[in-house]
């Protein structure tokens, strides 16, 4: 009951504070802090924190509908990454927390490419030399790509880093957040595609009358259903450990479905979907970006395949014991 009230309130807040214009502005470098303040003042970053510590005390399973809704509304901030990390940090750090799951050492410092929401984050959760930590980004070098960014951490930025608990499964947490984002964005592009197909007319009738269009949208609805379940299973399984399989399932399935779903939505929208001023692209770009974030489907399928083969179990037993939350 508490959960549905929270979800309703969050959806209202998303609807009231987000629009294609707001999202596009953030993608173009506008200040993200006012929107972040709105979301955090509503307590949305603290939902996993216990009630005694001023949070809502949601379970990971109960966070999923909120995470999905954030994707559906196109929340252009790492709200879910932050919510997932919050129980591991003390006070709320300065600004939203993005997650980098891989970094490379370069001459300029540690380099993390294409960090999802890296352009609008205030803090980066990253593992360096085996230690998970929170690095404030005020003085980091960033090359923004819309909401994502290539981030370089110089020695000075690292001086102010705060430790995260040992063994924090950053890649898995990041994968869960982006899986839910895909599930939500797929719902959004299905709704937009249905709306478009039932209003756009060609050959004297609405394009939804054409069976080829109907059948593609049926397939998109399947992608919406399957992505939502796969992502939810990842959340229902609870806080992941490093190497966990449920985030791998969530990210492997949603990533593959993101690509198919975006392709169908564009096919149905025709040239209109390609135009920058039409909002479909906000969500299909999110789908592509989220698909690649923290590794696309093949990367996570490798983990699942290795575990299945070494388990010695039948696929049925493996599904029941390892891939059912």
């Amino acid at each position: 009951m508490m959960d549905t009230m929270l979800l309703d309130a969050a959806e209202k807040l998303f609807a009231a504070s987000l629009s294609p214009a707001v999202i596009t502005a953030l993608e173009s470098g506008a200040d993200a802090l006012p929107l972040w303040a709105t979301l955090t003042q509503a307590g949305l970053a603290d939902v996993l924190i216990s009630e005694t510590q001023g949070g809502v005390g949601l379970t990971m399973a109960a966070l999923f509908p909120l995470a999905r809704a954030a994707g559906e509304h196109g929340v252009p901030l790492p709200l879910i990454e932050t919510a997932l990390l919050r129980p591991l940090t003390g006070t709320l750090p300065d600004g939203p927390m993005a997650i980098a799951s891989t970094v490379a050492h370069t001459a300029a410092g540690w380099h993390a490419p294409r960090v999802p929401f890296g352009a609008v984050a205030g803090v980066l959760a990253v593992e360096l030399d085996g230690k998970a930590q929170l690095v404030p980004l005020k003085h980091a070098t960033r090359q923004a790509h819309g909401l994502d960014a290539d981030i370089t951490l110089t020695p000075e930025t690292l001086a102010v880093a705060l430790p995260l608990p040992e063994g924090t499964a950053l890649a898995e947490l990041g994968a869960l957040a982006q899986a839910a984002r895909i599930a939500g964005a797929l719902s959004k592009v299905l709704a937009m595609s249905i709306e478009h197909a039932t209003t756009r007319a060609q050959f004297g009738r609405k394009i939804a009358d054409f069976q080829a269009v109907q059948h593609q949208l049926a397939e998109l609805a399947e992608a919406v259903q399957l992505a939502s379940l796969a992502a939810e299973m990842g959340f229902v399984a609870g806080r992941p450990e490093k190497g966990a399989l449920m985030p791998a399932l969530a990210k492997a399935r949603t990533s593959a479905l993101a690509a198919r779903g975006a392709a169908i939505a564009h096919a149905v929208h025709g040239a209109m979907g390609i135009a920058q001023e039409f909002p479909l692209q906000i969500f299909t770009r999110a789908l592509h970006s989220a698909r690649l974030a923290h590794g696309a489907e093949g990367f996570w399928q490798d983990r699942l395949g290795a575990a299945l083969l070494s388990s010695g179990q039948t696929s049925a037993d493996f599904v029941d014991t390892a891939l059912t939350p």
């Binding site: 259903q225 399957l226 379940l229 796969a230 299973m233 791998a248 399932l249 492997a252 399935r253 593959a256 489907e297 093949g298 996570w300 399928q301 490798d302 983990r303 699942l304 395949g305 290795a306 575990a307 299945l308 083969l309 696929s315 493996f318 599904v319 891939l323 059912t324």
Partner: peptide, 19 residues
């Protein structure tokens, strides 16, 4: 190749079963 394919198929199976 086969390891990845095994992972792909079992992920699809687990999700369809959940559905």
């Amino acid at each position: 190749v086969t390891q990845r394919l095994a992972g792909r198929l079992v992920s699809e199976l687990a999700t369809l079963r959940a559905l």
